[in-house]
Each structure stands twice: as C-alpha cells, then as structure tokens.
Design a protein around this nucleic acid. Structure first.
Length: 207
DNA sequence: ACATTAAGTGATT
DNA sequence: AATCACTTAATGT
C-alpha cells in the first residue's frame, strides 16, 4: 500500500523523504486491544501511528498498571525510538485503544534519515511531545484526586478516539488507573449525577 | 430458567 | 480511597 504517508505528513516532510518512507516501510493493521509493544520486548521497527488510538501503559512487576497517554495519527512512540537506537528493552506497553493502522519503519533508517532536516526535527519533536505528556501524567498522578484523574482519563479517551462513548467496564478502568472497581463505580456515579456522563452497561457516554 | 458478569451500595478501616 | 460483603441489573446459554 502506498500513499499512506503523504496525506498525514506532507506538511512536515520533504517530498523525497516521503518517497523513501513509502518505499521502505510497511502498513500494519492492529485490531482493538492488539498489543503493539510489550514490556521487556525488543523492537525492530519504528511505529508511526496512521489511524486510531494507541494507549501507552506503564506496568510494574506485580502487573499493576498505570495509564500514561495516548498516541494518535501522526504520532510516534518515543519509547520505541530509544529502544531501537540502543537495542534496549521496552519499559512500557502499547495497546490499541481502537482498531488502528500503524506504519512500520525498519530501525536502520532511523539513523540514515537524519540527513533529512525534517526527519531530525520530527524525531526531536516527538521526544519533546512525549516528555511533556509524561510530565502531564506525573502531575495528574501526584496532585490530582481520583475523581479528577478519572474525568481526565475519560476525556483523554474521548479525544483520542473521537467517540463520545467509551466501551469499557469499571473493572478495566480501575486497572488502568490502578485503583479498585468499587471506587471507579462510585466516582462514575457521582459524575453521572453531575450530568457530566451517562452510564450504561459496558459503555460510558460523555456529555 | 439459570448462570455469569457488570455495576451499585452500606459499613468499616 | 480501599476492602468486604452483599444486592441488583444485564446478558449469554
């Protein structure tokens, strides 16, 4: 498949780079909940997100999880950049929040394409963006109470999936926020009485 | 109709 | 905010 890169990146990449990318990479579709990058795995390619939303999660040894941020069209994953370059293991997990399409670029081009100013800019910009997202995530974790975190989380999903409906169980949400289901249920109930959301089975509607 | 899973709630720490 | 114990509601077989 070609011409998948141009629509999304023609503003920021020079034409020749776009040609190279389209020649060297490949498109891959990932179903909802498909794992893009798992904890402790090495990766051999750089993922560009073309469509859909990818959630990035930090996980500890006991399997506790904390949701960090979403990647959407045009984004790349800074963690995989580091991994690729240094042949290190991933310290995060990336899962498709929705059906997604990603573009895989073999690692070796990461370096090679630094001769293109726009590529260099893109990579540095990606790092910078991810860094800011991380800071935001830390702020949320450190300074906000659960009710705010929950609302932020819901809005984040709504934003990245462009869907007012969130198809998750309270249990799943609790896992990603590293809290208990009961707490999530209670807080959601409160948000509902504040007319911010509407609750259904397996579905939460943002108002 | 029954079993299973999701969600709601009071009480306690 | 977490946990327990229990209820109620929705859904699958």
């Amino acid at each position: 498949m070609n011409n998948v890169i141009e629509p999304l990146f023609k503003e920021q990449f020079e034409p020749q780079l776009i040609k190279e990318i389209e020649a060297k990479g490949s498109v891959e579709k990932i179903g909802k909940n498909g794992v893009l990058l798992d904890y402790n795995k090495y990766i051999k390619w750089i993922p560009l997100v073309l469509e859909g939303s990818i959630k990035v999660i930090r996980e500890d040894l006991e399997g506790n999880e904390i949701f960090l941020y979403h990647l959407i069209g045009g984004d790349t994953c800074a963690m995989s950049l580091t991994c690729c370059m240094q042949d290190k293991q991933s310290k995060i997990k990336a899962i498709a929040e929705t059906d997604a399409v990603i573009y895989k670029i073999p690692v070796r081009y990461m370096d090679e394409w630094f001769k293109y100013p726009s590529w260099k800019r893109f990579i540095l910009q990606s790092y910078s963006n991810r860094f800011e997202e991380l800071l935001r995530a830390i702020d949320t974790l450190a300074f906000k109470k659960m009710d705010e975190r929950l609302m932020d989380y819901l809005l984040d999903i709504k934003q990245s999936t462009s869907d007012f409906n969130i198809y998750k169980t309270h249990q799943e949400i609790a896992k990603e926020l590293n809290t208990s289901r009961v707490v999530v249920s209670r807080l959601l109930k409160m948000l509902e009485t504040e007319d911010k959301i509407e609750l259904h089975r397996n579905r939460i509607e943002i108002l």
